[in-house]
Design a protein around this nucleic acid. Structure first.
Length: 464
DNA sequence: TTGTGTTTAGCTTACA
DNA sequence: TGTAAGCTAAACACAA
C-alpha cells in the first residue's frame, strides 16, 4: 500500500466522532436512562476529568465521543495533531512523522522534551510514554467506566484497549481498518506498568478499595475514587514530573530493532518493497534515529528509555532488591521473555476472553493463520489481497486491506458500526470493548450503519 | 497457576 | 538542600 493512500488521522477522528455521535443518539432513544447518564456521585463529581482531552491538547477539539458532551465519558487524551492543520495530508501511522511542521522529530512519533510534547498522539503513538501519572490514568479509567466502581483488570483494559475503530477506503476497492487505542504505548510496554498501577491503587489515598461481595464471582475487589482527593489529582493531572528526556517504548523499539535490516540493506530495499513501505520506512527512520543518536546496537530492553537529545539511556545503576531472591527469580520467569507478549495480557479479562475476537481475527489474518476468504457479508465475499506485515501490525493503526468483490458497494463498507462502545467497564460479564472485540459481532449491523453514514462516506470520498 | 493486593526499597524530579 | 511526589522493581501473601 502506498503511503499516499492512507488517510489522515484527522479524517479518522471526524469519522469516528460522527459515528459515535449517531450511536449515542440511538442509545439515548433506546435507553433514555442508561447507566451512562446515571452515575454514582462519587464519579460524577469527577467532571473535571471531562476536560482532559481539551486540556491535554491545549486546543479546541471536537470530543471523540458523545459521552463527553453528556458529562459521563472521559476520552483518553488525544493529540492536537488530530486537529492540526499541519497534519492535513500527512497520514498518521506509527512509522510516519506525527509532529506538526514546526516539530522535527528524527523518529516518527518520538518527540523530545522541550520540543513539542503536546504534539504526541498517545492514542496512536506506541513509542512515547504518556505524560500522565498512573493516578491520572486510573482516574481516567474510572471516569470512563461510567461505573461507581471498577476492577483492576478493567483499568488495565481501558488503558490498553481500543477506544474507537474506523475504516476508510483506499483505492481501488480496498479498505483500511484503523483501531485507535487509548494509550498505545502500554500495549507494547513491559507489563511492569501494571505493577505500578496496583501499587498506586494500594498506596494512593485517592483510591478506595471496595471488597467484592461474597456472592460476586471474580477475582479481586473493586476500586473507586475518593472525591476528597480527586481535586488533588486534578491539580497534578498535568503536572506529572518531567519524564526522562523521552521515554520510548522499549518493547516496541526493540521489536523494530530485531526486524531491522542493516542500513545498507535497508537502503537497498527501499524501492523493491513498496508494499511494505510503511513498515520499511519505520525501520529506516529508526535506523536513522539510532545513527543520529549513536544508539547502541546491543540494545537492552531494560534500558529502554531513550532520548533523541542525547543517546540511549545509560544504566543508572539502579539498585536491585537487597533481599535474597528466595523464589529464585520465579517472578521474573513468569514474565514473558518477549516484551511484545505483554500485548496479550488482558486476555483473561473482558472482551477477549473466550469471545469472538476481531482483534485476534485480524491478527490471525495478518499472520496468515486465518483466511478472510471465509468471511462473507451479505453474500459479498471479502478477500484479503494485501496485508501489512511488520511492527505496525499490532500498533495503534492496525491496517488491514481488504479487497471487495466487484459487486461490493464501497460506500456500504464505510459502515463502521463497530464504532460501538468506546469502552465499557463490565465487572463480571465478558466485556465488549467494541465490535471488534465483541463475541456477538453482527456483520449485518456493520453494514446497516453504512446507509446512515453517507455524510461520512462523502467526507472520506473527498479525501480520496 | 495466575491474578490481585500489600509492602518495602531505591531512585528521579519538582518544588519550597 | 530537604522534602514530597511519583516511578520502578521486587517480594510476598492470598484467593480464584
Amino acid at each position: 500500500m502506498s503511503l499516499s493512500s492512507e488517510p489522515c488521522l484527522e479524517e479518522e477522528l471526524v469519522l469516528t466522532a460522527a459515528h459515535v455521535e449517531q450511536r449515542d443518539q440511538r442509545e439515548q432513544r433506546e435507553q433514555p436512562h442508561s447507566a451512562g447518564l446515571c452515575l454514582d456521585d462519587s464519579l460524577t463529581s469527577l467532571q473535571w476529568l471531562q476536560e482532559f482531552s481539551i486540556l491535554g491538547s491545549g486546543r479546541q477539539q471536537a470530543p471523540l465521543f458523545g459521552h463527553v458532551a453528556a458529562g459521563c465519558h472521559l476520552d483518553a487524551p488525544s493529540s492536537p495533531l488530530a486537529g492540526d492543520s499541519a497534519c492535513a495530508g500527512s497520514p498518521l501511522t506509527p512509522g510516519k512523522p506525527t509532529a506538526a511542521a514546526h516539530c522535527r522529530a528524527p523518529l516518527p512519533g518520538i518527540v523530545a522534551v522541550g520540543h513539542c510534547p503536546d504534539d504526541v498522539d498517545y492514542k496512536t503513538n506506541p513509542y512515547v510514554k504518556p505524560p500522565y501519572s498512573y493516578a491520572t490514568l486510573i482516574c481516567m479509567a474510572m471516569s470512563a467506566s461510567k461505573k461507581s466502581k471498577i476492577t483492576l483488570a478493567s483499568i488495565y483494559s481501558w488503558i490498553t484497549e481500543n477506544s474507537a475503530t474506523t475504516a476508510t477506503p483506499t483505492p481501488p476497492g480496498r479498505y483500511a481498518l484503523y483501531i485507535i487505542y487509548n494509550f498505545c504505548y502500554y500495549r507494547h510496554a513491559d507489563p511492569t506498568w501494571q505493577n505500578s498501577i496496583r501499587h498506586n491503587l494500594s498506596l494512593n489515598k485517592c483510591f478506595i478499595k471496595v471488597p467484592r461481595q461474597k456472592d460476586e464471582p471474580g477475582k479481586g475487589g473493586f476500586w473507586r475514587i475518593d472525591p476528597q482527593y480527586a481535586e488533588r489529582i486534578l491539580s497534578g493531572a498535568y503536572k506529572k514530573r518531567r519524564p526522562p528526556p523521552v521515554q520510548i517504548n522499549p518493547a516496541l523499539t526493540n521489536r523494530l530493532r530485531l526486524s531491522l535490516p542493516p542500513p545498507s540493506q535497508a537502503r537497498a530495499n527501499d524501492r523493491s518493497n513498496l508494499d511494505l513501505s510503511v513498515s520499511l520506512e519505520s525501520h529506516v527512520l529508526l535506523r536513522q534515529f539510532e545513527e543520529a543518536t549513536g544508539a547502541d546496537q546491543n540494545y537492552d530492553p531494560r534500558l529502554g528509555e531513550g532520548t533523541m537529545l542525547g543517546s540511549w539511556p545509560v544504566e543508572r545503576g539502579r539498585r536491585k532488591r537487597k533481599l535474597a531472591a528466595k523464589s529464585g527469580g520465579k517472578k521474573a520467569q513468569r514474565r514473558s521473555s518477549s516484551p511484545l507478549l505483554c500485548t496479550e495480557e488482558p486476555k483473561d479479562e473482558g472482551a477477549l476472553k473466550g469471545d469472538f475476537d476481531w482483534d485476534a481475527l485480524l491478527h490471525s489474518a495478518l499472520s496468515g493463520e486465518l483466511s478472510l476468504e471465509e468471511l462473507s457479508v451479505r453474500g459479498t465475499h471479502i478477500c484479503p489481497i494485501e496485508v501489512e506485515v511488520g511492527p505496525e501490525e499490532e500498533d495503534a493503526h492496525r491496517l488491514v486491506e481488504i479487497q471487495s468483490s466487484s459487486d461490493f458497494d464501497e460506500e456500504t463498507f464505510l459502515a463502521t458500526s463497530f464504532l460501538e462502545s468506546p469502552w465499557e467497564e463490565q465487572e463480571d460479564e465478558p466485556r465488549q470493548t467494541d465490535f471488534l472485540s465483541s463475541s456477538s459481532v453482527n456483520l449485518d449491523q456493520l453494514f446497516d450503519l453504512g446507509a446512515s453514514l453517507n455524510v461520512d462516506a462523502v467526507r472520506m470520498d473527498a479525501l480520496l
